[in-house]
Amino acid sequence: MSVLEGKELRVVGFLCNWCSYGGADTAGVGRFTQPTDLRIIRVPCSGRINPLFVMKALVGGADGVLVSGCHPRDCHYAEGNYYARRRLEVLKGLLPVLGIDPRRFEYTWVSASEGQRWQHVVETFTAQIHALGPAQPFAGASRPADRHRPDAAAV
């Protein structure tokens, strides 16, 4: 999907398969319009999310990262989101010292039935990222055009 130059930013979303991914689907089925900046990556559980996923996206030039999983007490695997909550909350402490605006990263909980909440979360977060503007990549970083695989970039 091409980026609409100047209008669309790159927001990476890591979504739990069992809740938020379903919630995004519900929002789609319900035809709730949403901004199109978000690129969704489906993961089996928010507990699967290595904090380095978030950092890789941000250091690689993503404009924002949104993580969404099951509400506490509703984890499909009973306790994955509890671990995720601690990890992601700790991770927030790293962004400002690294020179990354901490507002570019957020995590939340959306269940599969909460289509409207999903729409609200995406709208709010995308607006927040647009207010911050495009992230300036670290010197030497190309935009995420798969710079480690020159053959893929050439295709």
């Binding site: 380095l52 250091v59 991770l91 790293l94 690294l98 990549p137 030497g140 970083a141």
Partner: peptide, 21 residues
């Protein structure tokens, strides 16, 4: 990656820091 670009080198420090949190 194996480059000497800032993002690759910085990301190693991010890995080290996150793994030590």
């Amino acid at each position: 990656g194996q480059t000497d670009d800032v993002p690759d080198k910085l990301f190693f420090q991010v890995i080290h820091a996150v793994h030590l949190s």
